[in-house]
Amino acid sequence: MSGNMRQYAFFLGCIAPNRYPGCEAAAIKTSEKLGIELLPLKGASCCPAPGAFGAIDLKVWYALAARNLVLAEEMNMDITLICNGCYKSIWEVNHILKHNDELRDGVNEVLAEVDMEFKGSIDVWHLIELYYDEKICGVEKVRASVTRPLTGTKIAPHYGCHLLKPKKERHFGDTENPMWFEELIDALGAESVQYRNKMQCCGAGGGVRGFDLTHSLDITNEKLINVQEVGADAITEFCPFCQLQYDRGQVEIAEKFGQVYDLPVLHYNELLGLAQGMTPQELALDLHAVDCKTFLEKIL
């Protein structure tokens, strides 16, 4: 790779590589066009899931997330990732351990068992924030990379929760009505649309999807109603777990509540891949539960 590429250790998590591999492929290819090289973080595990795992023992959550961080520390490289849930675990544990000696000492005590030590020497970024960051990439560079504008499509943004919230521990500012994701969507030639209660949760997090699927889907259903209301052609997000909830959730909602939306759900990297000329096959869009055909017809 040429020397002016910025290199990051690519933390994959679980759902992207194991359910929506198109997200992984798209992230690698789209970021390359934007001057970002993603290198495999060998031996990484689940982040581990902040809701399902942190809920039962925060200490293990700290330790396993720290193990993933140490892998990148050993590469001497910042981490980037494409999932809000992973961001909560990896970014937040890094942040907490850097600022809390007591917790760091506890984590290092157990990491010593596997000959590791958390040093706090790297930073963690969501790929979407690198895309938006003027110093790294910026909206204009994203716009310039587009070869097949998504003209004529109306796309509903879903920010999810764990990248932006809780706002006082993050650095993304307003969490009531942020607009920066819209800029990134509009840069692809698409039209971002506003809908009721944009910032509401998808319903999957906190282990609720596994604990009470109907309850979880009821939240998702409310969001889908609000998105459909404004005539969106697709939903886009930057969290494969939200994607799973919206995408497979539509099948489950059809079964449980009898409501059908047929709203394609695309990770921003998949959307960017399409706009940069990647084919649906290169993005494995056939693995999506909701057929993306109607959406693809508008742009291909």
């Binding site: 994959l12 590589p17 194991n18 591999p21 992984e24 973080l41 031996g43 595990s45 056939d286 693995l287």
Partner: peptide
């Protein structure tokens, strides 16, 4: 090592995308 592990359908899809059948994680 994964909360949501890989499966055969996904492995096939990964190979089609030019990705290794298993991601470079604990898998």
């Amino acid at each position: 090592g994964h909360g949501v592990p890989n499966n055969d359908v996904n492995r096939a899809a990964r190979v089609k995308l030019g990705l290794p059948a298993d991601p470079p994680t604990t898998h």
